[in-house]
Amino acid sequence: MALRHWFEVRDVEAEQRRLGILPARSGDRSYDKGLRPLALTTLPPQLVRLKPDAPMVTLHYMQDIYDDGVLRADPWRWWFAWIAIELIARSGPDPQGERARRFVLEDPSLEIVRRQASRWLAAAPARILAVQERLSALVDLALDEADSPGRTIAERVRRSVANLDLTLAEAMASEAGRVSASITIRLAERARRG
């Protein structure tokens, strides 16, 4: 798929080493320790952007990445778009976004991303609403389950909220799935017209 060609991808940690925020190699003391707090970032593991010479049609495919009515483009949405394009290129269309969602939730290479999902959350205040909705659903589920014998409502709510890391990872994966579904829809539109 030619769309893959128009993405420029750089590793965040490598960029931080290049800029002197992190040591260039083990034992290196030449980096600026005052910049060290910048190493704790809300960025995804790779910085993804469209190349400057990308054709205008590429921007059409990425229309919902720029703004889906809820979230405006940020580094995470571009990262999700890159993942979606790679998955679509390898496995075909992802109209429901389920393949991208499962990839973000289950792929072993993204374990560190799932453990640090708070970085994703911190990158855009609108994401807090998505997480609040998920937590509300967990509480509702806990209240529904409370009718069964054995646990109190408080125990069920506590158990649901104790899995906050999973809740964040699922919300992040849902956003990745929406991005993938959006790109699939745009590609299908283009194929119908072409």
Rank of each mutant, 00 (worst) to 15 (best):
L50P: 02
V104N: 02
R99F: 01
I21A: 05
I21V: 15
Q63I: 02
S118D: 15
R18S: 13
E8K: 14
E155N: 00
V70M: 08
P23W: 11
R159G: 13
I83R: 07
R134Y: 07
D74L: 04
R115D: 14
L71C: 14
V104S: 05
V12D: 07
Q46F: 10
Q132W: 05
I153C: 09
I183G: 04
P125T: 13
T167E: 10
Q16R: 11
E170N: 12
G34N: 12
L40S: 14
R77H: 00
I83H: 08
L143R: 09
Q96A: 14
S91K: 12
L168D: 04
L110R: 09
R190I: 07
R77Y: 01
R156L: 15
V57P: 00
I153V: 15
V161M: 11
K33H: 07
A188R: 12
L168C: 04
D144H: 11
K33A: 10
R192W: 10
S26P: 04
L3H: 00
A24H: 08
D11T: 12
D147G: 15
T184M: 02
R36Q: 11
L19A: 15
P108Q: 09
L3N: 00
F7V: 03
V9S: 08
H60F: 13
L168M: 07
L138K: 10
D11K: 09
Q96V: 04
I153H: 07
R29G: 15
R25D: 08
L87D: 05
S182W: 04
Q63M: 06
G20F: 07
A54R: 00
A81P: 03
L47M: 13
S30K: 14
P125L: 10
T167I: 15
A173C: 05
M56K: 08
P75Y: 08
G69Q: 06
A146S: 15
L135P: 01
L138S: 12
W76D: 00
V57D: 00
A188I: 08
M56E: 13
G69N: 04
A188C: 03
D74T: 03
A162I: 06
Y31H: 15
P75M: 09
S160V: 06
E155H: 03
R29Q: 15
L187D: 01
E13L: 13
Y66Q: 08
A117D: 06
W6C: 03
G194E: 14
Y31E: 06
V179R: 01
S136L: 13
F80G: 03
L50Q: 00
L3W: 02
L141S: 13
S109G: 10
R10I: 13
S30E: 15
E8T: 13
P23C: 11
V48G: 02
T42P: 11
L129I: 14
A191E: 14
V57N: 00
L35W: 05
A73N: 04
E13P: 03
A154I: 14
L164M: 13
